[in-house]
């Protein structure tokens, strides 16, 4: 991991005070993993082994419906965390897939090392509280959007807040995330400004 990459990682954990000596140990806990486009990072039925921080690329988290179609639950991208958190924390087989939609470079930490951070750095407890609060609020907000907004409103709300690198992934993933058909997404993209 380069110094720049370490600084980006430390930036993600900005609530945690880590001095330069501790940073050396912290750096050693993370390994670099690279994935090709369309490579499966985590498979449904396997237990998630890592918590990831994304350096490059976009990844989609999805489940399969009864017809075997992908239903996208969320995305991760440069600077965001990634992984199948429920499987990782519970050490149980995942019901979701994590797939690299673009060539991806991720920093990965195993569960024992992740858990050791809470013992080594007391600030991690506060980070963990804030992180999972943010995850919970995000899921609640998305549920309300899906249940209350029209397709056009969902499209506009999403496009206004999503990072640029997400706007160029295959439309079918964005359409699935917004719970609309790819044809609807395509029509909204050509007819709606945001």
């Amino acid at each position: 991991m380069s110094e720049t990459e370490l600084q980006r990682l430390l930036g993600f954990f900005s609530d945690v005070q880590i001095d330069s000596e501790q940073a050396d140990h912290f750096r050693k806990l993370w390994t670099m993993r690279a994935f090709e486009r369309s490579e499966l990072i985590t498979e449904a039925g396997h237990t998630e082994r890592y918590f990831y921080f994304v350096l490059e690329g976009v990844q989609a988290l999805y489940v399969l419906n009864q017809r075997g179609e992908k239903v996208v639950l969320g995305f991760s991208y440069s600077g965001s965390p990634s992984g199948v958190f429920d499987s990782f924390i519970a050490r149980s087989p995942s019901s979701t897939f994590l797939e690299a939609l673009k060539p991806s470079k991720l920093l990965a930490i195993t569960l024992p090392d992740y858990e050791s951070l809470f013992g080594l750095f007391p600030d991690f407890h506060r980070w963990g509280h804030l992180f999972f609060r943010e995850v919970l609020f995000g899921r609640l907000f998305r549920e309300v959007e899906l249940l209350t907004l029209s397709a056009e409103q969902r499209y506009i709300a999403f496009m206004q807040r999503c990072p640029e690198e997400l706007k160029v992934i295959p439309q079918k993933y964005l359409a699935s995330y917004l719970n609309m058909k790819p044809e609807t997404f395509s029509r909204l993209r050509s007819s709606t400004s945001y």
Binding site: L40, E43, A44, G45, L64, G68, E69, P93, F97
Partner: peptide, 18 residues
Amino acid sequence: LFISPENQIQRLNQITNE
């Protein structure tokens, strides 16, 4: 019968786990 590799991977992992 539509066949997707992801569906097959998911079922295969369930089989090998069992």
